[in-house]
Design a protein around this nucleic acid. Structure first.
Lengths: 152, 152
DNA sequence: GTAGCTGCAAAAGTTTTGCAGAACC
DNA sequence: GGTTCTGCAAAACTTTTGCAGCTAC
């Protein structure tokens, strides 16, 4: 935890930004909720619990900054709000999501599934791939089970 | 063109909706601009050229309806607006995008690149895949060329 | 006549911006 | 002192909703 903060601090400094208390509080919330996909509002409310004086605009500005530095990824599940996700340490590629259209659960996949596909795209379309986003929509294991039970 | 309208009309009827003049005008704009990724506002302005009396809310309602019937896909490139894309005739899966981060160009890939990957996901995560979204970010051929020229 | 659809205007919700003041070298 | 950053409030945008009226069988 502390070492990850330290590393993020260095990344900010390298780009001539400071890790202010507000920014640190925001980053801590992201680290503590790494499993979730928080919206700006979510982050704001969580940061407020520990730093009640923070403003929503600051959270937005911080998240924008972190996105720019590729410390977080800004993602969109189509529900009208942007969500923010910490990148895995050292990850150069975006991770993937399994989104259950029944219950709304979102599972993350860190494995890189697209190595081969990327090569194919680079070759066939002459496109230099730098990043990718992949989401699968369907039914998670739990909802499949539920369905089977209903049918009996 | 006319036959595609006709088919969409049938799809609407099958779900007990009508192809009203406003809806038809909206669908025509989508067909005429199939290459682009129009936002609701874009569609509205284009529809207005031929049907000036149409309201923005109607366009939104029509696009929502078409999305629900899977005639169009609602997509998001992270620029704050939703965009709408006609599905290929008979396509059951979402197509893919190559997004150039230099010039903003968006190219479509209709090929299904993910057959194998999907099987892998279904097996390893016990997740029944129904649809997927894949976008690659990077540099298009034209921008790569431009870069090479600058360097010389 | 009733059910579905539309246009307008207002509302809702998210995100950005302007600005004066605070913090930090 | 100058630069960066913050909090507040207002503004800007996109999208949704309420409602009265229209359309089409």
């Amino acid at each position: 935890m502390e070492d990850r903060i330290e590393r993020i601090k260095k990344q900010l400094h390298a780009a001539s930004y400071k890790l202010t208390p507000q920014r640190e509080a925001t980053v801590r919330v992201l680290l503590e909720n790494e499993e979730d996909h928080l919206s700006a509002e979510d982050v704001y409310l969580l940061v407020k619990e520990k730093s009640p004086e923070i403003g929503l605009a600051t959270v937005y500005r911080t998240l924008e900054l972190l996105t720019e530095l590729k410390i977080v990824d800004k993602i969109n599940f189509g529900d009208g709000v942007s969500r923010y996700d910490l990148r895995q340490e050292g990850a150069t590629r975006f991770h993937h999501h399994l989104i259950c259209t029944e219950c709304g659960a979102v599972e993350e996949i860190q494995e890189d599934l697209l190595g081969e596909v990327e090569k194919q795209v680079e070759k066939a379309w002459n496109f230099k791939v730098k990043d990718h986003r992949l989401s699968f929509y369907g039914m998670c294991h739990a909802c499949q089970e539920k369905l089977v039970q209903q049918e009996t």
